[in-house]
């Protein structure tokens, strides 16, 4: 892996060295983890001490996890898209590692977004699921995530896998806006204004602050686990090379 890195004088490329990356990750992860716990703790405190919303009652509590989870689900795909570009343009080994590491986290948060959305929808709209534009495109996003994970598991050889994953991620990222837009269109023709009665008034600060705190907390969580998974992926590859060297030595001697 490490031979493919182009050595340059600029410092940003030094961080690309997997060994250096491991060192930095080891140092950062505890801090990020601590910040995550603090942030989510504060968010929970603010959320549970907030008064009931006059429209949504106590279900506003679900919003504090539903909205951040959905944001992180989308953020995760944009991280993957950037990683895909990194793989295709710069052939950067860490980009592929980042893409692989982000996929399961993104899938988990997409699932959470759908699940908490269903649990929020039941008391608010009277049903767990509607084929509304937003829900449908999120379901498609989940399937795309799962497909990418399946592909990552299916291809043994790391360099082929990296390119295939990057291309599929990129094609997906071009397609997601199209899916979103087409699902919007489809919805307007078939079921006008059945769900859009969820009015969105300018949010009160009492709700906005816990929501934003939770969003920051969830994002920090994403980056913590992302780093941890990247670290695992690097170690996994290291084990792989070590085993291959061992096999070669055994053959020779």
């Amino acid at each position: 892996m490490s031979e493919t890195i182009i050595k340059q004088n600029t410092s940003i490329w030094d961080y690309a060295n997997p060994t250096r990356f491991l060192g930095i990750a080891d140092r950062i992860i505890p801090w990020l983890g601590g910040a995550t716990i603090l942030c989510i703790g504060l968010g929970l405190y603010l959320g549970f001490s907030a008064p009931e919303d006059y429209q949504q009652g106590s279900t506003v509590l679900i919003m504090f996890i539903h909205v951040p989870a959905s944001w992180v689900a989308m953020m995760s795909y944009s991280v993957m898209t950037m990683s895909a570009i990194g793989t295709l343009v710069w052939r950067h080994p860490l980009a592929d590692i980042s893409l692989r590491a982000a996929a399961p986290i993104g899938a988990a948060f997409t699932f959470l977004g759908l699940l908490t959305g269903a649990l929020w929808g039941k008391p608010m709209w009277g049903t767990y699921w509607v084929w509304d534009a937003r829900l449908t495109s999120f379901l498609v996003l989940l399937i795309i995530y799962l497909g990418i994970i399946a592909l990552a598991k299916a291809i043994e050889e790391p360099t082929t896998a990296a390119r295939s994953l990057a291309i599929i991620t990129l094609v997906g990222s071009i397609n997601i806006p199209i899916i979103k837009f087409s699902v919007d269109w489809w919805n307007t023709l078939h079921q006008p204004a059945s769900v859009s009665r969820l009015a969105k008034p300018a949010m009160d600060a009492v709700f906005l602050y816990p929501l934003l705190t939770m969003a920051v907390g969830f994002s920090l969580f994403f980056f913590t686990v992302h780093l941890m998974k990247m670290r695992n992926e690097i170690l996994k590859r290291r084990i792989r090379t070590m085993k291959m060297t061992a096999a070669r030595q055994a053959e020779r001697g």
Binding site: E52, G57, S58, T59, L61, I62, I65, H66, A69, P104, I105, A108, F109, F111, L112, L115, T116, L119, W120, K122, P123, F221, V225, M228, K229, R231, N232, L235
Partner: peptide, 30 residues
Amino acid sequence: FGPHTAFIVPSYLATAAVILILVVWTMIEH
């Protein structure tokens, strides 16, 4: 939490479960 407890509690439990599974799984792997 009022009449909607049956929806709020599972949401939080599920979120906690998913977050824990992610972290613990990653740590075991490591």
